[in-house]
Design a protein around this nucleic acid. Structure first.
Length: 256
DNA sequence: ATGGTCGGCAACCGA
């Protein structure tokens, strides 16, 4: 089983990249974040034409998540418990034997702001949701844009950016608490060295060329799934296309 | 060199 994640930063603008990538890679699952489209305008038919099924939850202008699958969904959920009717940042389903949870964690703006506290609270609610509905011996993939780099090797300037949003100890602790419940970082399982990034800020001139990146997108998996993982890679292809994204695809394969 | 990014959506917010 091949599972991928991609922050699209507008699914409509990025549709050709996504369709081309699906045709080439043929993943079983693709989790998308920042679709930035209301449900009535979601391009579901494009996915159906490719032989994929899709579930989604969007809102006007901001956020929005979707899961694209080759196989039927069951137990679809569109809300984080405790965060119903808030921002569209959570979607989960079961596909075959695997439970998939796709999240777009709030960006957080800056430490000390209300939005930073919202980010920390969101991560706490995510852990509570997972604790309530799952067990670590179930095969679960938790994927998405977490907007947090966890270790010094996951960011281009760990000294300079320490304590900034996206690389603050409180955020790292919040994500690590989720991991400690029973998830491992599948990319890190296969690649011990640093310098592999999934995100480059548009606002930094030539950030990609200058390797000024962050690893903030993850595929986490519980033990029964992680022990069957065979590879994980970052695909920077969207960087060289006409409409480059600031995030990459991240893709993991499992021998199930 | 006093600028330098995107996307949504229609003025500015969010990343």
């Amino acid at each position: 089983m091949k599972i991928a994640t991609f922050n699209a930063n507008s699914i409509r603008t990025r549709m050709e990249i996504i369709v081309g990538w699906l045709e080439k890679e043929q993943p079983d699952l693709l989790c998308l974040q920042e679709t930035k489209v209301q449900d009535r305008d979601f391009p579901a038919d494009r996915f159906r034409d490719l032989g994929y099924q899709v579930i989604f939850k969007g809102q006007k202008s901001y956020n929005g998540v979707a899961i694209v699958s080759k196989h039927p969904f069951s137990d679809v959920r569109l809300n984080l418990q405790g965060k119903e009717d808030e921002e569209a940042r959570f979607i989960s389903a079961s596909v075959g034997a695997v439970h998939v949870i796709n999240v777009y964690v709030p960006q957080g703006v800056a430490p000390g702001t209300d939005k930073f506290l919202y980010k920390l609270g969101w991560l706490r609610d995510l852990l509570m949701h997972i604790k309530r509905d799952y067990a670590p011996d179930m095969p679960i993939a938790l994927t998405g844009d977490f907007n947090v780099a966890l270790e010094s090797i996951d960011i281009y300037d760990p000294e300079g950016l320490k304590g900034q949003v996206g690389f603050h100890p409180d955020e790292q602790t919040a994500v690590k608490r989720v991991m400690e419940w029973g998830f491992s970082d599948i990319f890190r399982l296969h690649h011990k060295e640093g310098g592999h990034y999934t995100f480059w800020d548009y606002r930094i001139p030539n950030g990609f060329k200058r390797k000024m990146g962050w690893r903030i997108d993850y595929i986490f998996a519980t033990r029964p799934l992680a022990e069957k993982s065979t590879s994980c890679r970052i695909d920077t292809e969207p960087r060289i296309l006409e409409k480059p994204s600031d995030h990459t695809f991240l893709v993991a394969e499992f021998d199930i």
